[in-house]
Design a protein around this nucleic acid. Sequence first.
DNA 1: AGTATTAATGTAAACGTTTACATAGTAATT
DNA 2: AATTACTATGTAAACGTTTACATTAATACT
Lengths: 333, 333
Amino acid sequence: MVTIKDVAKKADVSVATVSRVINGLGGVRPATEERIRKAVEELNYLPNVIARSMVMKRTETIGVIVPDIANPFFPEVIKGIEEQARDSGYTLFLANTDESVEKERQLLHALRERRVDGLIVTTADEQHSPLMDLELGGLPVVLVDRHIQDSPYDSVVIDNVDGAYTAIKHLVTTGHTKIGLIAGPDHVTPGRERTEGYVQALRDFEIPARDQYMKEGDFKEESGYQLGKELLSLSDPPTAIFSANNLMTLGLLTCIRDQGRELGKDIVVVGFDDLDIATFVDPPLTVVSRPMRQMGEIAADMLVERIQGKTFPEPRKVILIPRLIVRSPDRVE
Amino acid sequence: MVTIKDVAKKADVSVATVSRVINGLGGVRPATEERIRKAVEELNYLPNVIARSMVMKRTETIGVIVPDIANPFFPEVIKGIEEQARDSGYTLFLANTDESVEKERQLLHALRERRVDGLIVTTADEQHSPLMDLELGGLPVVLVDRHIQDSPYDSVVIDNVDGAYTAIKHLVTTGHTKIGLIAGPDHVTPGRERTEGYVQALRDFEIPARDQYMKEGDFKEESGYQLGKELLSLSDPPTAIFSANNLMTLGLLTCIRDQGRELGKDIVVVGFDDLDIATFVDPPLTVVSRPMRQMGEIAADMLVERIQGKTFPEPRKVILIPRLIVRSPDRVE
DNA sequence: AGTATTAATGTAAACGTTTACATAGTAATT
DNA sequence: AATTACTATGTAAACGTTTACATTAATACT
């Protein structure tokens, strides 16, 4: 491997001078610079970032920890992070926890050893994140999508209450009063908050909440199917159903088809999070959509600020507002 | 930051001894080791991998370059890579080229500067990959999904010919003789080879290939829609259509619905690559599916072997066989 | 032309490890 | 008890940069 010394020798200068032109610090005579550039070129010299990191005490590197890279949400977020981070000269370490706290702990360890300048993480467990009991020694961290209560970290999340509220409001204003809910688990924020939005909207529009219209699922496809079936077979079934995430929406749609109900006519569906088939089903699906890419961008920006030493009296919490994408009349007769 | 020196001082030994216990090299008296471990613990010492890389001349790091992380194929591949790589102690740098050769060049440069021990890449352009004109200085590289002609790199790809052949064979054995093709672009391997499989199968089963049944798309959804329309409006339309990738299949399905044709009855569809909606449409879709995860695992394994210095007379090319997932009778009356 | 000033370049320490080699300590052998 | 043979530990160089500081060369000023 050719080093800065080889270049120096070839250009007949000292390593300091070579370093100066490589880093564009100026104060080098044009003729000298020319000679050095030629040497770099001819020797095919590639600066060793590792050695540089060593003395600079920073690696220009960001660790990204996600619970499931196969969930379409995260690739979009990562895209946002990457683009923004790259603009600031950072490269990403990517790691996948598979929703396992233990893996999260190991990955955190590995990335800290690698001396990342900062971390962007969606923790596997809001309640027992290793981020909390680990001694991070001031390493900047930004949380994405999942907020950790009382943590000292910045975070960028979605206003789940608002998202759900808007969805229900849409259904109410299109004439529905019998609105079912397929909720997420109550012990995680997205689950709890989306239910909260539903309840709040009903209250505001003075629609009595009926217990039998509210079913709690687990964010998995199967529960959407199952709970959809329960809702549809009520003696007085809802005319519309709000499903709290994409997978459950998928299950719900399958259920509706299997039950021989007609979408948009017998039953109207609005889901949280957009999905591929939303534009494919007939009529297309109205959904609550999140700015995933933007979440990544913001997270990266906030992290870079922290890395650059900016401080704030409180951890920052950016709450983005989801958008309702109306794709159908969704009217009730 | 606490360093090995601090530990040494606290445990009243030399840094060499500390290094020995950290790396488990043995030859240290139990009492001494105990003292050192305690010091490590108390000081919360975290070895600096950067410094280690410096002297070891390897970073235990792999660069992964993909053209589009939002394409569901890649997260699966990455999962496979990551799992396998982690077992061997490697951490991944992830980078996204957005199908841009220029970005690929930049990323290659950045990762080489970072001294990755090896690269796994799906190049943005098989014909003009920067991997070919760049002086990589013997850096191990494994190609995934897209093979580069005459390159010195190992690769793991799919037998596209076989995949398409199997799909057509399935259609023939379920009674179809009028089989349409929505092909991928002829200038990229997956496009060309899948068409080849189609043609070969027809020949083997002695079904005359009709020009008007073969339409070339661009792997995008819209072309699936458009070409589907063309095929369906022929005076003697095919009874089955093979679509060469997931997005075009999606377009085709939308088209079929819009045209008021009944899937599985008026027209049978088989697609290359599985998709979410395959199990959702009625009847569910028969598809050619690839072992994405496995592709990643194999790529990682091959790369690690190369990193460890294994050599082979020829670049290795692993060709995986796709699997036909039959989800419907797909019979023709 | 000689000095003062500024611009260009060089020297060497530092970053935090690993490891070859040297040294000190301990146990075994006579 | 003295020598030998290990075993445990320490010393210092090396990895490839950056940069404070020292030095030298070039330019400006009288």
